[in-house]
């Protein structure tokens, strides 16, 4: 277990952040190793989130080796998202609310707010994963508001406003200046996966894995006699790419 001077262990820090303990959000800004802890938490959350979102990789039939590479790239993109959040919260705190706070301190508390996302992997759980993902989103939102409140020393309503402004800035950035960066990220992912990544979860109900079956079934029947059926069933199955 990693121990940092003046802080509980990494595991206890994660637990307290998940419990939305205000003290840990305050403490992490003051200790020398706080940023390191924040970065570890963000990395763990990024890996968990990328696993939790890996269904899209399977839908697009990414091969195992490239699957691992794609996971790492997705996890890395979460780090970029973390930096964006940090910058946005700092800019809102300094220029909108006139607070005097270092970027490092903001980076520490925003990183802690990622702690609930360490459980994002459990979104994969069948049947229960969907309601859990909703719970996790709400949990993370509360964690972000707490991080903003403790990091910028704001009142709750100010923290809510600051979080909302931060979210709005990110949405605007994504659709304007940030578009080339997101495009680069998608290009990198396509290069890593080796497939076009053309399908999403919403396409799944339209995809068929062996679409040639109906045609094959008719042709196959005219070629095979009834006696040959049991021995030749396997020839009917051919590998096909999924098509909508």
């Amino acid at each position: 277990m990693v121990e940092f001077t003046g802080m509980p262990s990494l595991w206890q820090t994660i637990q307290q952040a998940m419990r939305l303990d205000q003290n840990i959000f305050a403490d992490i800004q003051r200790v020398p190793g706080g940023l390191g802890i924040a970065l570890i938490i963000v990395s763990l959350a990024g890996l968990s989130e990328s696993l939790g979102q890996s269904v899209i990789l399977f839908i697009n039939r990414v091969r195992p080796r490239r699957f691992m590479l794609a996971l790492l790239i997705t996890a890395a993109s979460h780090l970029v998202g973390y930096l964006l959040w940090t910058m946005t919260v700092w800019v809102v705190g300094v220029y909108v609310f006139g607070q005097t706070v270092s970027l490092t301190a903001i980076a520490c508390v925003v990183g802690l707010a990622y702690a609930p996302q360490i459980l994002a992997f459990f979104e994969l759980t069948p049947f229960l994963g969907n309601p859990f993902s909703i719970l996790l989103s709400l949990w993370s939102m509360v964690a972000v508001v707490m991080a903003v409140q403790m990091g910028l020393a704001l009142e709750l309503w100010q923290a809510l406003l600051a979080s909302g402004l931060g979210w709005a800035f990110i949405q605007i950035w994504r659709r304007t200046i940030g578009r080339p960066i997101y495009a680069l990220g998608r290009w990198l992912q396509r290069r890593a996966t080796g497939v076009p990544m053309e399908f999403t979860l919403s396409d799944l109900s339209l995809l068929r894995r062996h679409r040639a079956w109906p045609e094959n079934l008719g042709n196959w029947r005219t070629r095979m006699s009834q006696r040959d059926l049991r021995g030749n069933v396997g020839k009917l199955f051919k590998r096909e790419q999924p098509r909508a």
Binding site: R63, P64, L124, F237
Partner: peptide, 24 residues
């Protein structure tokens, strides 16, 4: 148990992605 549950869809997903071949 929760980790087991979260990992359980990988067999299905891996089949779709062609990781386990085409055999029935």
């Amino acid at each position: 148990l929760l980790i087991w549950a979260a990992l359980s869809p990988f067999e299905t997903l891996g089949w779709w992605a062609g990781w386990f071949g085409e055999k029935i």
